[in-house]
Amino acid sequence: MMQTVLAVTAVILSLAAAGAIIRISRGPSLLDRVLASDVLLAILGAALCIDMAVNRHLNNLMLLVALSIVGFIGSVTVARFVADRREQANES
């Protein structure tokens, strides 16, 4: 049964990743792209989780935590940068 679950979730996650990638390439603004790449990272995390659940190991758990922290730092940094640059542009 786990093999069918693996196949089904693989299809679902591939579709989701495709959607996120389309948004990354199309996204009208930088923030849209950041958001979409965040989602892509979350989908990768979901894939790691499913691997752990199906194969019954915990090797990826810390990778998962690291992944969420990388995503957090990345999006916060970009958001900060975008806001600051626009504000300076308005003032000058």
Binding site: V5, V8, T9, I12, L13, L15, A16, A17, A18, G19, A20, R23, V39, A42, I43, A46, C49, I50
Partner: peptide, 11 residues
């Protein structure tokens, strides 16, 4: 499966 569907919902 539901967890994976949530990712799809996000996309």
């Amino acid at each position: 499966v539901v967890g994976a569907l949530m990712s799809l919902a996000a996309a």
